[in-house]
Amino acid sequence: MDKLMETTLSILAGSKITLEIFAATLAMSLPLGLLAALARLSKIGVISRLTELYIWIMRGSPLMLQLLFVYFALPLVGIKFDPLPSALLAFTLNYAAYFAEIFRAGIQSIERGQYEAAKTLGMTYIQTMRRIILPQMIHRVLPPVSNETINLVKDTSLIYILAMNDLLRVARTIVQRDFDMTAFFIAGVFYLAMTAVLTWMFKKLEAHYGKYDF
């Protein structure tokens, strides 16, 4: 029983870095993703094209490779980060690319009539986006954003490659030390608990933003 408690506490300590990476990545990649979506939709060709290139690179290569690149390859050109900032940079750029495509699709799904109504009422582009388009977009993109957010919880386990002791790496260390699979089960329960909380939160958000739909 003591051993079970000890294992659980170790894994709990490992969840701290998991949750840090998760929360910081989400907080940075959502706004960056929105900016990238607007840039991708920009009428200025070069901005749109460059954003497309960025999205292609981030979605087209493994997140693991991006982590390794930031940590091991960037120092070769004189840019050196500690493991945590390296992980945050790679995660944020990667997730922002996925969010950008979700937001772009969401923005494009809003009927042209909404823009026209806002325009004939004299609203500027920024007012139209902020007051009319984005509030409706958020409601429509919540399900795919929820998907990505849940993916992010699990993707955080990749940071073991930068020798950070996240939830899964702690569990694996214990399993390899004790030849006892219990730690894996506990780790699984931790991930499920986190995603359960997220699922519940997104349900609440959908209900909040959906109050005008019938």
Binding site: E111, Q114, A117, L121, M123, Q127, Q136, H139
Partner: peptide, 23 residues
């Protein structure tokens, strides 16, 4: 407009207040 184009995320009153307040 033919398709009304009301702002669906705003109440009727908010639809009327929006442009005078923002613009």
């Amino acid at each position: 407009f033919q398709q009304f184009n009301l702002f669906p995320h705003m109440t009727v009153l908010e639809n009327l207040l929006e442009a005078p307040m923002q613009v």
